[in-house]
Design a protein around this nucleic acid. Sequence first.
DNA 1: TCAGCATATCAGTTTTTCCAATATTGTATA
DNA 2: TATACAATATTGGAAAAACTGATATGCTGA
Lengths: 301, 301
Amino acid sequence: MLTHRQIRYFLAVVDAGQVSAAARALNVSQSAVTLSIKDMEGMLGTALFDRLPTGLRLTRAGQQFRHHARDIAVSFEAAMKSVEATDDAVTGRVRLGMSWTLSSYFAIPVIEHFTRQHPRIDVELTEEPREVLEQALVEDQLDLALVLTSNLTSGAGLKSRTFHRSPRRLWVSVDHPLTRQKTVTLTDVAKHPYAVLRSDDADKQGLAYWTDLTGHPEIKLISTSVEAVRSLVAAGRAVTILSDVIYRPWTLDGRRVERIDLAEAIPTMDVGIAWSAAGTLSPAAKLLRGAFNTSISGGHI
Amino acid sequence: MLTHRQIRYFLAVVDAGQVSAAARALNVSQSAVTLSIKDMEGMLGTALFDRLPTGLRLTRAGQQFRHHARDIAVSFEAAMKSVEATDDAVTGRVRLGMSWTLSSYFAIPVIEHFTRQHPRIDVELTEEPREVLEQALVEDQLDLALVLTSNLTSGAGLKSRTFHRSPRRLWVSVDHPLTRQKTVTLTDVAKHPYAVLRSDDADKQGLAYWTDLTGHPEIKLISTSVEAVRSLVAAGRAVTILSDVIYRPWTLDGRRVERIDLAEAIPTMDVGIAWSAAGTLSPAAKLLRGAFNTSISGGHI
DNA sequence: TCAGCATATCAGTTTTTCCAATATTGTATA
DNA sequence: TATACAATATTGGAAAAACTGATATGCTGA
């Protein structure tokens, strides 16, 4: 079993470029580091370094592994810092509606973070199409609703606040040919197999890019699962254009997905929260609204 | 410094709900686990668990920490897998269809593992309702399809293999009144607020339990998000009956969900793979079929 | 060739982790 | 209110893991 200590030693060697320097930095003997690295290589069944007379250089497998090692080290640091204070003072109930695209990919983590910080506030979730959410807000069956504010019906007795304009960018695998171009246009993208994320609200915007001018890409997958799309992209078998809100750099198996800015202006995905113009929000609801605000602009997702 | 071992022990205790059971699962003594946890708590300067006579329950800080611990464990696994040996010999394309319930909750991890092991096999994913999948198999537009085999139309020129019979059970929060009953019947369940997981294929079975005899529960949430359902259940605000395949003992914020066997026999969810009776499967398709077989019976999910 | 600088190996020591037995604590029950 | 029960806490000594320091070995460049 890999240990945290081995990960730290490994990263130190990567940074230093040689075992002896790494050992000095770590305040242990050179032999301890050497053994640790050899142990790891034995466990993984692959050489992580090429041994050169001047030091150690990562092999291909080692480069791969390095990304994961960094991930692990960062996760440990985050874990140590994670013990936070909570706020028991505010209590109450918030009825929050959303559509599923938003729910799984960013709302749930934010809500769970919120309920940890405010354990005595009860957040009630419902998922509905945008039209139903708007209706429910007006009829006071919901306090708040997460919506794509650009799609919001205007003048329906609702207030809203857009807290994030999420750019849409091209997602590709690390070794994709398009990563080597200086600028990428929609016409370039149209030449590659494409994956579409199917969602109730977002896809109307999402498929509007393609015109006769740009040409149309070959659709390789239409899926409701972000994981499926990400997976296909990471494997280099498709590209896609999606919002930063649902971007993660890693697939489940640790392959990387990269983002590229497109030469053309693509409409942003405007995420926000809506509430009824009549009546006033409870303190609990205001807190939750604030939580979405900070957690999204604060880069928690 | 936190160690990987401590993280594993911590997660085992969270999953088991008590130190002694976790120790058994880890094949170490109870005292080793106790010490490890106490060490961590000392390091973090906070109690991670409340000690109850029946076992350990996460404190708020512990719930926070669990999030990170999980991250760490996943990162380690990904790191180990990142250097796995691959099989470049078999090449080809496999067109795989599935319905979304199956896709996000177990198919994707299996496929990602498979494509790592067989980088030169191209797995094409599509998601469709079961009827469309069956049609596509017969017409040779798909090689394989993941389906609930109990729903499969018989005599449609399809072969299938069921590789997992997943029991359906009642999901409730740890402190739910139903946990204190010796036996729980559907009539008991009908008295409590209920959450429905909306999915194309499974809900036909999933809602067929309720008859005039048992009564009908009040539906509190209909959602496509397993996380949303699990979250509601963990909060004790609803119960649900779902397949073991998609069961996890905790929500993202570390609250527990328990399962209870029902007095009545509930049909199992039979997960399997189907292919056309005409023609023969390519070697690549056979390999993928085998991958599903072993990864599911092998307890990878 | 040989000095210089790097990693590899190995035996012995230190530190960590583990086990087994036992003490302690809280709940339910009679 | 005593008692059984089921859980965690503690502790001393054994086992395993990690580390050190000395030494062997290998490559480069003057």
